[in-house]
Design a protein around this nucleic acid. Sequence first.
RNA 1: GCCAGCGUAGCUCAGCUGGUAGAGCAGCUGAUUUGUAAUCAGCUGGUCGGGGGUUCGAGUCCCUCCGCUGGCUCCA
Length: 648
Amino acid sequence: MQESSIVNISFPDGAVRKYASGITSLEIAKSISEGLARNVLASKIDGKITDATLPILNDVKLELLTFDDDEGKMVLWHSSAHIMAEALESIYPGIKFGIGPPIENGFYYDVDLGDRVISQEDFKKIEDKILELARQKNSFVRKQISKSDAISYFKAKGDEYKLELLNDLEDGKITFYSQGAFTDLCKGPHIPDTGFIKAIKLLNVAGAYWRGDIQRKQLTRIYGITFLKQKDLTEFLVRLEEAKKRDHRKIGKEMELFAFSEKVGQGLPMWLPKGVLIRERLENFMRLEQRKLGYQQVVTPHIANKNLYVISGHYEKYGKDSFQAIKTPVEGEEFFLKPMNCPHHCEIFNSKPRSYKDLPLRLAEFGTVYRYEQSGELHGLTRVRGFTQDDAHIFCRPDQVQEEFIKVINLVLKVFKALDFKDYTAQISLRDKEDKKKYIGSDENWEKAENAIQEAVKGSNMKTVVEYGEAAFYGPKLDFMVRDAIGRKWQLGTIQVDYNLPERFQLEYMGSDNQKHRPVMIHRAPFGSMERFVAVLIEHCAGNFPLWLTPDQVAVLPISDKYNENAKNILQLLNNYDIRGFVDERNEKIGKKIRDNELQKVPYMLIIGEKEIAENRVSVRKHITGDIGTFTIGEFAERIKSEMNLNS
RNA sequence: GCCAGCGUAGCUCAGCUGGUAGAGCAGCUGAUUUGUAAUCAGCUGGUCGGGGGUUCGAGUCCCUCCGCUGGCUCCA
């Protein structure tokens, strides 16, 4: 055998095996085991993801990708999008295709259906068609194609979307993939054949503007997900159902935390007494931490003169999108509902001359703001039109920016730790490199601010991502993103460096050099908004709040109303230990009281009957866990105290 | 704002192809005095999201407005 016809394949475990040149990853998998071959979706050759059917001609590092690899999933779902496209085309001849990528959970394809409409009712027949195509085990065939041939193919097909995509592609680097009767412009890679797909579920349809541009045609986006095993699909659907049970809108209603009313208006939440108990404790927690860090509380009005926002630049940027101005009846002066607190705080800074010795000046306010969010975007407590920010603005010297920024990061991390939020990412949001016109302020200041953030983050060893184009129009930010029950990402805490507003409001302080200097502003809100934070908190703990936050820590349950008075006395004793709760005095059997308080997610239930009174003890039942035995009041109080200290 | 779907009692839901509303829970009243996830009985409660239309007749079909859900766009 000639040396040149042999290739050395190195595997992730360090093993190196020899194969005949031209072998494919799929054949290599087969040589290891048939079972493996059945699961190989694609391969990674020297770090590059490729078709498992690609012949290997050189010595390479090979990694076989299966459904257990995120990259394997992506290939499967990308191929699934192609198969769905084939199914759609066979059912709705003449439709045109936009893009069809894999996403975190599945895939979608954007299609132009012409006059036709697809709704959930059509899913069954599309799914059936996809499975039928999958069973045909059609190979995915890759083909290099010249730009002119590619253009004439899609011209003949009449697909202007693909033609537009082709426009941006370089001749010589264009590939087509075909499976069955469907051919698509695609750089791949793809699974070997359609037979890998054993389970499919179309999830929803939505309108999606072509290339995300609201000016252009809205295509129909169809979302779906596929699996190699039916069982995986079933599990996925069960998980979706489970997640829905944590939905803050459902729990918020059941636990009577907040409510909406059509009459009040959409996106305007009303906090109910129990919800306020949670919110107030969060606010007090933040007030205390902020006091320790040298913040001072301020309060500013809910409306402000239009001119304030003309100065700040918000009027120009968002004036058209905010609630309409309120006019004074006599003078005709225009006022706006406050959409943010920073301009007010700038004017507080300006209310007297400031010295470098006063800096950093940290002004905090639980400020309620109102924004006209688009109706289609409103969502429970996470996206509303009236909300309260745990806002503060730090006015500091340029040389203090980084240190102050780091202090804020630490505050945010402390909050997340106290509430056991582990799954978050810190997103550094910078300017769009391409389109700097969207932003105000000098290049120099932007550079400074962006560097300050990146430097500050370096020391924190947080999981961070950098997103270009996500900055606020006046400055870069560091946002703390968390996910809700069904995996959507929300911004909670935010820290923003701003060189712009100090300029617009002509903020100045007297330096040690007896010269006037311009301070730098840091906008920051560790919770973000109370509404969104509580929403995400609800979904994280499924309504089982940490003991220090929960509206009622204990329910005292008398066995019968003979013991109501004893129960009230016990509650009184608990109150003396700063433990809060209520007596369930209803004329119900103990089983009923337990059930109802379990459903209300009360952390502890104390059961009081003849036995307990005789022994001067209480029977304790813990939420979900059940009966945990009897305690004296003192012992129980100790237990509660130590449990509360765990996280704070 | 745009696309698709949904909107029946406080809550969860039933109501076939049009023949003028039903259950469980909750609530109220009474009985029961109860031992670790639903005691029993009776009662109350809906102009079927609003408005308009088709029809002898609309919860059911059509139009429109409002709200909600999932996306798109946006997010100071």
